[in-house]
Design a protein around this nucleic acid. Structure first.
Length: 493
RNA sequence: GGGCCGUUAGCUCAGUGGUAGAGCACCGGCCUUUUAAGCCGGGUGUCGCUGGUUCGAGCCCAGCACGGCUCACCA
């Protein structure tokens, strides 16, 4: 916060001083209430004026003042509990001249306690006729403008509290996000999965192909990496006999920031012994359509001007077919390594030289992915970029894997987990050779993980779903910053 | 990191090289069922920062900061 005070800050500071002089504690400890504002609104919104008059229901409600209409010897104002708004009618006659006069020291933004009977005004609005009014917290800055709310996106992210006070739509998104996570927990708990927590700090940053953040442990004098994925730890648990596990937690990747990427993001990963990626596909369909139906009440999403149907079954498309459809590369040419590399390098000259696998990735991301709007399982991508997946049954160069694309975004990624420790060692060594060629996103070798595999990982299906992107879809938001409460911003000043 | 755009009052925004504006909010006054309450009066400002051009810069130029879009990288 800046030290410079505006005229409005000064006026509020002066009111705070006068309140204290008058013996009011502007930040009291106790705030008993009989109802939340939203409880009063929910239970009485349908009550007729005569019913209210007959019931003479007396409530004490707490909330933040959002608007004030002062009319001489009476005031109307709205308070909010962050969920609902409720009008308060303060009359000098009812509350007493002293308390009424004290209201002059109250401001929009203050958090107050109101006691009184609930009635309906002439215009039909549910209202508390105040007989008592107390201050619960003085607000020392003016709130943003009431018509437009807080528009400045930078301020909305830097001062999310103001965004939440002023913009109901922002509140809706984060409540939805919470409901999504709660639904997912229920979904997996009901199916016998165990929720676990695995390390966020890794000695070997594995489980994905990405650059990590580095940190240091002083007592052990040890460089550690913030995890890029929990995958290898979760599979150790399956080796240990926890047959169904899931984790919902943060991953950290040292990459750029854009509409679909935040350096820390929330990932759901789940693993099930004796399942494969085909089973994961079916589970994914049930999870996604269930989320939409129970949270939005429908199985279609409006997103970025498109209507997206989550009704199963989702389209299934082999990677090579998708390439043929989207990139103009004939299906046969997908196996032509030289041709694929040539085309990839033509599109991304700055990344030369490309391996076959990377070139396929480039072509897919550039040409195919943007066109995949309706939910589509892209099956069997190249093995080269899937070092932790089993090979596909019908082609050793393909992975037994799928990526679920929706609205041009990768929403889920799953494979039949590679369980053969010797094959895993060869794949890691392949990755080390990529690193030596300059690929700093290749997977480092993790001998401890290989040793765990040597004890026997059962055939296992595993999947990751990005919670942020899933929330974007369900909330209809097209930037990830709209679904992360505090997205990373460069500090100001 | 590159390109484009933005940054003016607490907030939302106008502003055409010549005395910084509006609405909300705020301050003073009137108003006891209002609700984008109303009426009268008041502009409260480091025009993001630093330089430059000019008789004169919110406006033109350069650099910097932060943000947005986009490209690059990634999920």
């Amino acid at each position: 916060m800046s030290e410079r005070k505006s005229d409005q800050d000064l006026a509020r500071a002066d009111k705070l001083r006068r309140l204290i002089e008058a013996g009011v504690d502007p930040f009291p400890r106790r705030a008993p209430r009989t109802h939340a504002v939203s409880e009063v609104v929910a239970s009485l919104s349908g009550a007729a004026p005569e019913d209210l008059e007959a019931r003479r229901l007396r409530v004490t409600v707490n909330g933040r003042i959002l608007s004030v209409r002062l009319m001489g010897k009476a005031v109307f104002f709205h308070i909010s509990d962050g969920c609902s708004k409720l009008q308060v009618y303060l009359r000098a006659e009812a509350v007493g001249p002293e308390a009424f006069e004290r209201f002059r020291l109250f401001d929009i933004g203050d958090i107050v306690s109101v006691s009184g009977e609930v009635f309906r005004t002439r215009t039909g609005e549910l209202t508390v006729l105040a007989s008592g009014l107390g201050l619960l917290a003085k607000c020392l800055h003016p709130l943003p403008e009431k018509w437009h709310g807080l528009q400045d996106v930078e301020l909305r992210y830097r001062r999310r509290h103001l965004d939440l006070i002023m913009n109901p739509e922002a509140v809706r998104v984060f409540r939805l996000r919470s409901a999504i996570v709660a639904h997912i927990r229920r979904f997996f708990d009901e199916r016998g999965y165990l929720e676990v927590e695995t390390p966020m700090m890794h000695a070997v940053p594995g489980g994905a192909l990405a650059r990590p953040f580095v940190t240091h442990h002083n007592a052990l004098d040890l460089d550690l990496y913030l995890r890029i994925a929990p995958e290898l730890y979760l599979k150790r648990l399956v080796v240990g006999g926890l047959e169904k596990v899931y984790e919902i937690n943060r991953n950290f990747r040292n990459e750029g920031i854009d509409a679909e990427h935040n350096p820390e993001f929330t990932m759901l990963e789940f693993y099930e012994a004796y399942a494969d990626h085909e089973d994961m596909m079916a589970l994914t369909e049930v999870l996604l359509v269930g989320l939409s139906r129970s949270l939005l009440g429908r199985d279609e999403l409006a997103y970025g001007g498109e209507t997206i149907s989550l009704r199963p079954p989702f389209r299934r498309l082999k990677f090579r077919q998708a390439m043929a459809e989207g990139s103009g590369l004939p299906p046969a040419a997908v196996d032509d390594r030289a041709e694929v590399v040539k085309r990839g390098e033509a599109i991304a000259p700055e990344k030369r030289p490309l391996t076959y696998g990377k070139a396929l990735d480039v072509l897919f991301d550039k040409l195919v992915k943007p066109g995949l709007v309706q939910p589509t399982f892209i099956l069997n991508p190249p093995r080269e970029v899937s070092p932790l997946a089993k090979a596909a049954e019908d082609n050793p160069n393909e992975a037994a894997r799928f990526e679920l694309m929706i609205a041009g975004m990768e929403i889920a990624n799953a494979f039949s987990e590679l369980t053969d420790p010797q094959e895993q060692r060869r794949r890691f060594e392949e990755q080390v050779r990529e690193r030596q060629k300059g690929d700093d996103e290749s997977h480092p070798i993790d001998l401890d993980y290989i040793q765990a595999l040597e004890y026997g990982l059962p055939p296992t299906g595993g999947e990751g779903i990005g919670i942020d992107r899933l929330t974007m879809l369900l909330a209809g938001r097209t930037t990830i910053r709209e679904v992360i409460l505090f997205p990373l911003l460069r500090p100001k000043e």
